[in-house]
Simulated scan of single mutants.
Amino acid sequence: MPNPAPPSGCFDGARHLYAVRVYFEDTDLSGVVYHANYLRWFERARSDMLRLLGIDQRAAQEAGEGAFAVTDLALRYLRPARLDDDVLIESTVAEVSRVTCTLVQKALLGNGLLCEARVRVAFVSPGGRARRQPAQFTAAFTSLLALPPEGSDLP
């Protein structure tokens, strides 16, 4: 019996792309995607982006190193998604420090922007205090900053 793997998205240069479909459970009474569901989609895309980068959040947490926590979030809603729409979540790394990483995430329908988020996550100790993230995490995020921008003709 086949055992399909959950979707994890893929990288296109520095962009992580993650597809979601709008189901009935995602919509509100008016038939459009409920605003909080964009947060869920962005979180899933970020988690799978980290997984593809080789960042094992669970192992870091179980080893007592810490975990990522959202410390700042700004959302901008532009137009709604509706039942059965195929939405693409695009995630890019905007800034990296020893403790934090800032990502820009977009929910796209075709070429149209539905919602955009700027999310800063900090690596925190098991006690909740900000701490330096593991060097391999910083290196993974930084490697995406070094890639050519979307649509660039650079090698």
Rank of each mutant, 00 (worst) to 15 (best):
P2A: 14
N3F: 07
N3S: 14
P4E: 08
P4D: 01
A5Q: 15
P7V: 08
S8H: 14
G9T: 02
G9V: 01
F11E: 08
D12W: 07
D12P: 09
A14C: 11
A14K: 10
A14F: 10
H16L: 01
L17A: 05
A19W: 04
A19H: 08
V20P: 09
V20G: 10
V22S: 13
Y23K: 13
F24T: 12
E25M: 12
E25V: 01
E25A: 11
E25Q: 15
D28E: 02
L29N: 13
S30N: 11
S30Y: 13
V33Y: 07
Y38N: 05
Y38P: 08
R40W: 06
W41P: 09
W41D: 13
F42P: 00
R44V: 02
R44D: 00
A45E: 04
S47G: 14
S47N: 12
D48I: 01
L53A: 06
D56S: 06
A60T: 04
E62P: 06
A63Q: 15
A67E: 11
T71M: 11
D72G: 14
L73R: 03
A74N: 10
A74Q: 11
A74P: 05
R76W: 04
R76F: 07
Y77T: 13
R79V: 05
R79G: 11
A81P: 06
R82S: 10
L83I: 14
D86Q: 08
V87C: 05
L88P: 04
I89N: 05
V93A: 11
V93G: 09
E95D: 11
R98F: 15
C101W: 07
L103W: 01
L103K: 04
V104R: 14
Q105C: 00
L108S: 07
L108M: 15
G110T: 09
N111A: 14
L114G: 14
R120E: 09
A122W: 11
V124I: 06
P126T: 09
P126M: 00
G127W: 01
G128T: 00
R129L: 01
A130N: 08
R132E: 15
R132G: 13
F141E: 01
L144I: 03
L144H: 07
A146V: 03
A146Y: 07
L147Q: 10
E150D: 04
G151D: 02
S152I: 03
S152N: 02
S152H: 04
L154G: 09
L154S: 08
L154E: 07
P155G: 05
P155C: 03
